[in-house]
Structure formats: structure tokens, C-alpha cells
Design a protein around this nucleic acid. Structure first.
Lengths: 405, 405
DNA sequence: TCAACATAGTTTAAATATTGACATAAGTGA
DNA sequence: TCACTTATGTCAATATTTAAACTATGTTGA
């Protein structure tokens, strides 16, 4: 788990090419030449061998640009399988994926008690049967996306409010039980990585993912790779202070973003206003239990113009928009991907957040920033975690014929 | 100017070794082996040749750790010279540096009129004489650190409030006049790069530089390299919104950090309170012209316990501290370097900013973040710009004997 | 004091990787 | 059709990298 910090060795043109195709998708030989800074001859030779090895394949012949048309190349999707899992407080979502990010297997694994041992045991018991179905070569790594602050370099969950765990050496526990190299990262970062490589962000080299669910998490991607920071904690956007006098957060500070803009905040504000007697279509039948009102319904009401819901949603989205503006000024991303159920279920939330972001960020930077809604649902975390594990561990050395150790 | 995005080609062990020594400083052969992921043999051979070429030298023999002691290696400082310049609204500060970051020449070049042509002309006229003194090999690049929003990939100043310039193709202008490859970047990012490589940040791989002067700018460094973002605008921290109802900024938004925490804000607040008749040691003689009161004096008064000055300084530092806390949560840096005259001249400013930062960021992340005061004075921008030019352009291919093109 | 061990660095032939230069392929437009 | 453009293939020549055996220089403890 505690490899060096570098992602993917650059040794050998074949490795470099595979890495490039994995991170950036389809490319022609000429494009590979430019991006890898290798010669045409080297690329040509290496590609022949990789096609021979059935790791790469030609797809379409493109439009001519005035000469011989280029041929697109991509990884052969069904040559190898990678595994990833996304953890929440009730279950794992385990996924198996090919090298193009397609899901080839998915399984929900509930665990009995809210303790690390139970979670690890459930995963350990379920995995053998899960991978039995997959007759292809499964790479000997697994990535785990978990909520909370994770020291990725040590596979250590430092602290997770969602799980109620502290200092859990999850990486080592799983590695011992599963016998495969294990990489642990924050699940928002994992979900963002799947968007970055295969989803809404796949056109962008520099992007930020923001997941809005019961909390708010983020991932920052530079050149399609995740930024970690000192201990793997980069991206804790949910604890950005947006209102110094705001409500107390579990982290000990006041006015953290996720106390003001995540789904629970929207639900609470809505209930409070309803109790104060404000009119709203959300009341419906008179015996309606306000306590059962959940976000999807509120978001839908806002999109349909219900004034109360709209007001609450816009308030929350404004906070997010301010943080997004700061992100734009600070990191100048090509795109921000808004993921998670809240942006997906509520268009007015997104509209407001983006409007505020555009207002409050520098025009020149804002103009260079695209906004997209996340592509993946609950499988995104597993896909991203699996990819991250591959980033960290193999760099395809396992796929190529052995030459020396 | 519009090379590929990659920094430094990885071709050849010698290039990789030189790059490693340049970015990370002194290292032994074994450490180089680990960080470059090359074999001992390769390192050993390459180092021999590099010593032969007088590009690398052995320095001390270290303490033994239970076996043969390692020998430290570093770049030979006086083998080559790089050039950089830092622009403000009145002059260039031109510098020449060796490969260890030592200043071997410095010159202030005022320019007559506040237009790009005059600035470029002044630089063009002064340079030949400046480099005449330096009898060593001067690498054919120059880096320019300028205030404002810079599209680094195009050498274009998009917009600079300090200079009053818009869409100036400075890179091309200078390149044409000087006949050397020119790289333009924001000067705060340049100043931070000098701290990152040679100054207060040289122990850290992941750091953030914040310069507090008449404005506030920043640079973000991951693995000792500058993060650019989509158009080179990453680091515009001065326009972070910290008080949505705050004063109007030149950028068009309200409550930007640099309107509340930079030197002019401190000066204005102090004057306002003095005019309101608040007691302070700053008044001194009764005929004192309040309008002439400048930051260094206010900072000194705050450090000596003057209540008015302290109050103003602490207010400004609190805003900065909030932004620093957000930076810690968002990027999890190993260190934040506070540069520029304000932190340097006023200890209480720093104390307060750090205190607020520690309060408002996640404990686990804050505990991993060191705070340092910048090392360099006005030469830092030139040094950083020169380094950045080397990062972008040569990667030492010019230093090694030619083999092919 | 000396053997046993630990860490750092060198040398060699042999294996691998990369390239320049030239050849070929497949399109466009007059 | 020819002249031109862009993309790709081939191969001998060259450059780089490595495994493995060896040398060098320290510590530790009987």
C-alpha cells in the first residue's frame, strides 16, 4: 500500500502508451506520439506488439484532414477486469469493470454490524463467488472508496463521521483477507475519478468533482490524476466555511458548507418553514407527516415552481455557488462536475449554483469553466476506486509479458 | 511558448536525474534510484558521466546508517545561468541565477511610460549589458513574472489591474526582441516557486504560497511543480469571497479577500479609526498627516501592542485565516508559505491568521500543515520565473551533449 | 579485535528500447 | 491524372538499461 508517490512508471514505451490510452481514452498513433514524446517508429512498433498481445485494438478510421486518415486506437476492453468497492454505513457496492470503464459485474453486500471487522468479513465472504462468474483475467488489486478522511498512503481511515470509525487500518485488513493489493481512498474522490476518466468529465484534463448527497465531498484532478495533498486529504470541500455564524458542524466548526447546502440542510429548512405555516404544494394531504419529507420530493417541487421549495433550494445552492466560485478562482478548472443525487434530481439547484458561481468568480476564469452533471449513479465510486488502485499499483506491468523481474 | 503541457521530458536517465536534483535538491545515488525508479547501475553510470560533464558534483559523505555512508550529490551551481524578471508598474527587477538558486546578478530597470512597448524596450536595451558581466553559459530562455491574470500557455497577459493592461502578447513581444524563448507567468506564482524550490518551502513537496502585499496572490505546488489550471489562472486567491456584503473589488465582486486583508485595507481601516478619534500610539506628533501612514509602521505598532493597530491587523488576518483554513481543507498542503511585506513586517498578523486557520480547518489536516514565512525579498519573483522557464522549455536537453536532434 | 552484517557504489556483458531514414498507404484538390 | 498532405510501417544502427557479481566503507557485538 505504501508504494512511492509516483503514479505509473514511465519505463518503456508500451507502458506509457497503455497509460495514455487508459487515462485519456481513444487516440491515434500520431496523437500518442505527440503526447508521449516518443518517435513515430517507437509508437508504431509498440502498437504492433500491443495489438499482437490483444491489449490494444484499432477502432475506426477517422475523417481525413487532407491526407491519409488517422486510425483510432483503444484498449481492448475485455482483456482484463478490475475490482472496486464503495462503502457506506450499511453495505458495500462491489463492482467489476473492464479497462474502458464498462461495468461487467455489480453486487450489493450488506454487513451486519457497524464495525470494521464485520464489513471486511462480509466483503471477504462475498468476493470469491462474485469473481467466479467473471471468466476473464482479474487484476490482483482492489480499490475501496470509503466516506471520511482517509490517509491513502497508509490505507488508513483516519476518521469517518458517516461510519463512526476512527483510525481503522482498512487497507491492511482487506489485503490480509483478500490476498490482493488494496488501495483505500475517499469515496467522493473515487466517484470523481470515474467521472473524470469515463463520465461527464472525460473531455477535460483538469477538473473538479463535487458530490452533493447527505454530505458534500470533492475531488481535484490535474492531468486526469487525483491530487492527494500531504496525507491524501485534498478535497474536503464540505468543511469550507461559508457562514462564520452558521450552525455547528460535526467537525467542530461553524457554517461548514455541508451543513448548509447538502440534502439534510434542505430537508430541515423546508420542514421548518412548513411548520411556520408557509404555503407550499409540498403539504399535499392534510395528514401529511412533514418529518417524512425527503429531498427528491423537495427538489421536484422546486423545479415545478413551488415557491417555498424553490426558496430553500436556492438558498442552499447559493452557498454551493460561492464555494464553486472560489474553486474556479483558486484552481481554474476546465470543468466542474456536479455529482450525487441533489444536482441530479433538482435542476433549479444546479441553475442557481452556476449562476452564483458565474457572478462571483473572475469572468475570464469562469468563462473557461464548463459545468456538467455527473454521469454515474451508485456504481461510480466502485469504478473510480478500481481505477485508482490501478493507477497506484500496476501501471500495466502485470499485463505485459515478464522481462526480468 | 505553446509547447506541450508536460513538464520536462523523461527521456534518458541523465535528464531524469538532473530534473530530480533541480527540483528536490541534494540527494544520494540511492535516493535517486528510489525516486526515479531506475536501477542502481543506471544511476551510477549516469552520475559518473554527469560528474565528468561537470553538471553534478559530490558534496559531503553522510553519516552511516549501519553500512557504507551515502554520498550527497548536487547540481554544479556555476555551470549555467538562468534569467528571470519580475514586472511591476514602474520597473523590471531582472535577475541572473545559478542552478542552485543563488543570485549572480540583479538589476532594476525602470521604464518610461506605462505601456507594454516601453517596458519591453527597456528590458531589451538593458539585457545585453547585464549579461555581458556573466561569463558563464547563459541558457537561452527567460521567465517573466507579471502581475495579473496570465495565460501562460500563450504568453498572454489577459488582464492586469496593477499595470492597466489588457490582452498583451508579452511573451511574443519579448521573444521577438530578445531572441530567447520566453515564458510568462503570474508573479505571485513565480515568487512562490522560488520559495518552493530554494526558500522556506524547500522541505515540502506539496505547498501553497500566499503573497500579501498591495494585493493577495498565491501559487499551488504539487510535487514541487506549479499547478496551472485550464488557462494558467490557478491561484487567484485574492478574489476569494470572504464577506458577501463587503466592499466592491475591481473584479466586480464584493468582499474579495484582497479588499479586506491586503496592505491598503489595513491602511484605510487604520486611518478611518484614527479620524474617528480612537487613541493610538500611531498619532505621534499632533501635526501628523494621517494620510501618509503606511503599512510597515502600522504593523510595527501592532506588534508593539498598540490596541488600534492590533485590532485592524487582527481583523485583516482573520479574513486571511479563514481562506487559509479553506485551502487546508481543500488541498491538504504540507506547508503554507506566507510571503510578501505584510507577513514579513508584522508578526501579529501571522499569529492571528494561523490561529484562525487552525481553528477553522479540520484538525487532522491542520496538524499536517506547517506555516513558514517567505525567505526571499524582491528577487524571488525573478528567481521563480527563471526556474519556471527552465521547467517549461529545456529540461536540460541543452546541457547534455547532442545525440541526434 | 575481528567476524558478521548492513548499506552504498562500480563494473561487465547482455538484453532492450529507441530512433533516423526511407518506404508505403490513403486520402485531398486542381 | 498528378502533386501534395497526412499517417503509418520497416529495419539497421545506435543508445539505454539492467542483472549479477564485485568492491567499498561503515556498525555491532562476542
Amino acid at each position: 500500500m505504501q508504494d512511492s508517490l509516483r503514479t505509473g512508471d514511465q519505463k518503456g514505451s508500451k507502458t506509457a502508451i497503455l497509460q495514455m490510452l487508459r487515462l485519456h481514452g481513444t487516440m491515434s498513433r500520431i496523437e500518442l506520439m505527440r503526447r508521449t514524446e516518443l518517435s513515430r517508429a517507437t509508437i508504431s512498433l509498440a502498437i504492433s506488439e500491443l495489438i499482437e498481445l490483444k491489449l490494444v485494438r484499432e477502432t475506426e478510421v477517422r475523417q481525413s484532414t487532407g491526407g491519409r486518415p488517422a486510425t483510432s486506437l483503444e484498449l481492448v476492453p475485455d482483456s482484463h477486469i478490475i475490482l472496486g468497492a464503495d462503502l457506506n454505513d450499511q453495505m458495500w457496492i462491489l463492482g467489476a469493470f473492464d479497462l474502458l470503464g464498462n461495468t461487467v459485474g455489480k453486487l450489493q453486500i450488506p454487513y451486519s454490524r457497524p464495525v470494521p471487522e464485520a464489513a471486511v468479513q462480509a466483503l471477504t465472504e462475498a468476493l470469491p463467488q462474485f469473481i467466479q462468474h467473471l471468466d476473464k483475467s482479474i487484476l490482483p488489486v482492489i480499490g475501496l472508496g470509503v466516506p471520511g478522511l482517509v490517509d491513502t498512503y497508509r490505507g488508513l481511515i483516519r476518521s469517518s463521521a458517516v461510519l463512526g470509525w476512527q483510525n481503522v487500518e482498512l487497507g491492511e485488513m482487506v489485503e490480509r483477507n483478500l490476498g490482493r493489493s488494496t488501495v483505500v481512498l475517499n469515496r467522493s474522490r473515487a466517484r470523481g475519478l470515474s467521472e473524470c476518466r469515463y463520465g461527464a468529465g472525460k473531455e477535460y484534463d483538469h477538473m473538479i468533482y463535487i458530490g452533493v448527497d447527505t454530505g458534500i465531498g470533492a475531488g481535484i484532478y490535474v492531468n486526469r490524476e487525483l491530487i492527494h495533498g500531504a496525507i491524501g486529504g485534498a478535497g474536503e470541500i464540505g468543511h469550507t466555511t461559508v457562514d462564520a455564524d452558521g450552525p455547528l458542524c460535526l467537525c467542530g466548526n461553524h457554517g461548514c458548507l455541508q451543513m448548509l447546502a447538502a440534502a439534510p440542510a434542505i430537508e430541515q429548512d423546508t420542514r421548518r418553514l412548513l411548520r411556520q405555516g408557509e404555503p407550499s404544494t409540498l403539504l399535499g394531504q392534510p395528514d401529511r407527516d412533514i418529518q417524512l419529507l425527503k429531498f427528491p420530493e423537495i427538489g421536484a417541487a422546486a423545479d415545478q415552481g413551488d415557491p417555498l421549495a424553490l426558496r430553500v433550494v436556492e438558498q442552499a445552492a447559493t452557498y454551493l455557488g460561492i464555494v464553486m466560485a472560489n474553486l474556479v478562482n483558486l484552481l481554474n478548472p476546465q470543468a466542474i462536475i456536479l455529482g450525487g443525487p441533489v444536482p441530479k434530481a433538482c435542476n433549479s439547484f444546479v441553475q442557481t449554483a452556476v449562476k452564483v458561481m458565474r457572478q462571483r468568480s473572475m469572468n475570464l476564469l469562469s468563462a473557461a469553466t464548463a459545468i456538467r452533471i455527473g454521469t454515474f449513479d451508485d456504481i461510480g465510486g466502485s469504478l473510480g476506486a478500481a481505477n485508482f488502485a490501478l493507477d497506484r499499483h500496476l501501471s500495466f506491468s502485470h499485463l505485459l509479458p515478464a522481462q526480468g523481474k
